[in-house]
């Protein structure tokens, strides 16, 4: 499987915050979720990747080309939707589209129409961007971001303040885009919950460090939630838990590698459940001492 983005030992510090030694690959045709709480470094990382801010050191390559050597060529193939939308609210939709259309030599009107066209008739040529709802604004931004024959779509926390219905409408758009196996998506989210149904793998950041980069199903199938009587803890390899809560009525833990706990589960009558991405993230933060 070929690689869309390769990041090697990326460093960036400003003030007391530091992105520390970040390395990962994003394969072609995949949706990668970048998760981590506010301040973990997601937005800073995304900005470093596409040279919106300068990194201190490390390598960033898109399709085998360094961002330092081929910035323009890369930006022509990357669609970017940043948090809060960086468009001018006092422009009309038409003006905004023209602005973007003229900025890209490879603009493809058919793609824009495919994603936005069906909604366009609701608006006049004088409709201001500021009059759109949050969801419409996002759909408009994504349509613009995809319309220059985009091979990689990067979305920074698109769902901040969205309800589940609005969210799912956007996810349908992303699913349609990813049907083409040459397309890839990098999408960030604080908890990972809204994007869990569509992503293929998760990258977790905490306090500027990369905690894990794992296939979604493998992550959810190795990090099981185990519950049982506290008296049984002596019989289980407790070191396999990344988080363990011992209450008055039993223990609850999230293990790191379910295969190592599995042999004990049937014998000891432990309860095993799948957990979710947010709980796994919290468990790692707990182990790293960054959450109570």
């Amino acid at each position: 499987m070929s690689t869309v983005l390769t990041v090697k030992q990326l460093q960036k510090s400003f003030g007391s915050f530091e992105l520390h030694d970040i390395s990962f690959d994003i394969p072609k045709g995949c949706i990668t979720g970048l998760i981590g709480v506010d301040g973990s470094g997601k937005s800073t990382l995304i900005k470093c990747l596409i040279s919106l801010i300068r990194r201190d050191s490390g390598q960033v390559e898109f399709w085998g080309m360094s961002i330092d050597d081929a910035e323009q060529e890369i930006k022509n193939r990357v669609g970017l939707v940043m948090e809060g939308n960086n468009f001018y609210d006092n422009l009309t939709l038409h003006e905004t589209k023209e602005l973007i259309e003229n900025a890209y030599p490879n603009w493809n009107e058919m793609i824009f129409q495919k994603y936005w066209g069906c909604r366009d008739y609701h608006y006049s040529s004088r409709t201001l961007l500021s009059s759109l709802s949050q969801k419409e604004k996002l759909i408009f931004s994504i349509s613009l971001a995809l319309a220059h024959n985009t091979d990689l779509l990067i979305l920074d926390e698109p769902f901040c303040g969205f309800d589940p219905v609005d969210c799912s409408e956007i996810l349908v758009m992303l699913r349609e885009y990813i049907q083409d196996e040459n397309h890839s998506i990098l999408i960030s989210s604080p908890s990972g919950m809204e994007i869990s149904s569509i992503v293929d793998s998760f990258i977790m950041l905490d306090d500027g460090e990369l905690v894990f980069h794992m296939d979604k199903d493998h992550l959810l199938e190795s990090h099981m939630l185990i519950k049982g009587a506290t008296s049984l803890l002596g019989n289980i390899p407790v070191s396999e838990f990344i988080k363990l809560d011992i209450g008055n009525y039993g223990f609850t833990g999230i293990c790191n590698d379910y295969n190592k706990i599995k042999p004990y589960c049937a014998d000891l009558d432990l309860t095993v459940e799948r957990t979710n991405i947010a709980d796994i993230m919290m468990a790692y933060m707990w182990r790293r001492g960054n959450v109570i």
Partner: peptide, 11 residues
């Protein structure tokens, strides 16, 4: 199939 079943393409 990955989209339909909401699992990862790697699966």
């Amino acid at each position: 199939l990955a989209n339909e079943l909401q699992v990862s393409v790697l699966t």
